[in-house]
C-alpha cells in the first residue's frame, strides 16, 4: 500500500513538473520570471495574453486529455482483460473524430455550442457498442483487434470523405489533424467544451476499480462478490466514450497513450486493475504533456502532430505486446 501511495505521489510530482514546463516553453521565448509574473500577477499586457490565453489552456488540455486517455485505456483493458484494448487502436477515437467532423462541417457545431463534443461522444458510444457486440464481453484479442481495425478504417474513410466534400479549401488538409491530434493553438473555449464531458467520464470510470479487481477472478466470481456486471459495462461504455469523445472533439485522435501507460505501470501496481486506474490517469497526463512539449522542441515551426510522437513511442511497444501475447499463447 505504501508503495502504491509513493507511486501516486511520484507520478503527481512528475505531472506537475511537466505542466510547469509546458507553461514555460513556447515560440515567444519569454523568460521564466516574465512568464510567471504574467501568469500569476497579470503583469505585461502581451505576455499575459500569451501565458493566460495560449499556454495555460494548452497545458490544461494536455493534462486533461492525457488523464482521460490513460484512464480509459486502463479501464477498457481491465474490463476486457486484454492489454491491447486501447481507444485509438480499436476505433473509438476515429469514430469520435467522425462525429466531430460531421458536427463541424454540417454547421451544427456553430449553431449549438455543445454539438461538437456531443457528436464526438455519440460516435465513440456507437463504436464501443459495436465493438462489444462484435468481440463479445470477453474480448478475445484477435476479434477485438480485427473489429477495431475495421471500425477504424471505416470511420477514417468517412472522415476523409466529409472533409474532402467540405466547401472549405482548408478542410481536406485537416485529415491529418483528426488522425493524429494536436494541441497547438487550443484555447479556453476548447477547455470549457471538453471539461464537463471529461469530468463525467472520470466520475464514471474512477469508481470501477473494485469491480475490475473482482473481474480478474472471472465473471461468475465477480457476480458472486456482488458486482453487477451490466451496470459495470454501462459505466465503462459511457465513461470511455465521454473521455475519448471530449478529447477527440477538441484535440483530434491521439493514439497509443492508453496502451503505453497502463502497460508500463501494470507491474508497479501489482497488476491490480483497480489501482491501475488512478496511476494510469496520472501517467497518461505525464506522457501527453511530455509528448506535447516534444512537438514544440523538435520542430517548433512545423506544427508536428501530437499523435506522431505518441506513435513513435507506442507503436514499437504495440509490436512488442503482440509478440509477447503470441508467445504466451493467448491468440
Amino acid at each position: 500500500m505504501l508503495n502504491f501511495r509513493l507511486l501516486l505521489v511520484f507520478l503527481s510530482v512528475l505531472v506537475l513538473a511537466l505542466f510547469a514546463a509546458s507553461l514555460l516553453i513556447g515560440p515567444a521565448g519569454l523568460g521564466v520570471g516574465t512568464s510567471l509574473r504574467a501568469l500569476l500577477a497579470g503583469q505585461g499586457e502581451a505576455a499575459v495574453l500569451v501565458m493566460r490565453e495560449i499556454r495555460l489552456p494548452r497545458a490544461l488540455l494536455g493534462l486533461m486529455l492525457g488523464a482521460s486517455l490513460g484512464l480509459s485505456g486502463a479501464a477498457m483493458q481491465g474490463y476486457l482483460r486484454n492489454p491491447l484494448a486501447e481507444p485509438g487502436l480499436i476505433g473509438v477515437s476515429s469514430s469520435a473524430a467522425l462525429g466531430a467532423v460531421i458536427a463541424l462541417q454540417s454547421g451544427l457545431a456553430a449553431a449549438v455550442a455543445l454539438a461538437l463534443p456531443l457528436m464526438a461522444l455519440a460516435g465513440a458510444v456507437l463504436s464501443v457498442l459495436l465493438l462489444l457486440a462484435l468481440a463479445g464481453a470477453r474480448g478475445a484479442s484477435l476479434t477485438l483487434i480485427l473489429a477495431g481495425i475495421a471500425i477504424s478504417a471505416f470511420a477514417g474513410a468517412l472522415t476523409s470523405l466529409v472533409l474532402n466534400l467540405s466547401p472549405n479549401p482548408y478542410a481536406a488538409a485537416e485529415i491529418v489533424f483528426w488522425m493524429l491530434g494536436s494541441l497547438s493553438d487550443r484555447s479556453f473555449t476548447h477547455v470549457w467544451l471538453a471539461l464537463p464531458f471529461m469530468a463525467l467520464g472520470w466520475a464514471l470510470l474512477a469508481p470501477l476499480g473494485r469491480g475490475l479487481d473482482a473481474l480478474t477472478l472471472g465473471e461468475d466470481a465477480a457476480a458472486a462478490l456482488g458486482i453487477r456486471l451490466s451496470r459495470l459495462r454501462l459505466a465503462l461504455v459511457l465513461g470511455t466514450a465521454s473521455c475519448v469523445g471530449a478529447g477527440v472533439a477538441v484535440a483530434g485522435a491521439v493514439g497509443f497513450v492508453g496502451l503505453v501507460v497502463p502497460h508500463l505501470l501494470r507491474p508497479a501496481v501489482g497488476a491490480r486493475p483497480g489501482r491501475l486506474l488512478p496511476a494510469s490517469a496520472l501517467g497518461g497526463a505525464a506522457m501527453l504533456l511530455a509528448a506535447d512539449i516534444a512537438t514544440r522542441l523538435i520542430a517548433p515551426e512545423r506544427d508536428l502532430k501530437l499523435g506522431v510522437v505518441t506513435a513513435l513511442v507506442g507503436a514499437p511497444l504495440f509490436l512488442h505486446l503482440i509478440y509477447k501475447t503470441r508467445k504466451d499463447g493467448v491468440w
Binding site: 454547421g107 457545431a109 456553430a110 467540405s166 466547401p167 472549405n168 482548408y170 478542410a171 485537416e174 493553438d185
Partner: peptide
C-alpha cells in the same frame, strides 16, 4: 470560406 476548418478557427 463557407464550411469549417481548424486553419480558420485559429
Amino acid at each position: 470560406y463557407p464550411g469549417a476548418s481548424q486553419a480558420e478557427a485559429l
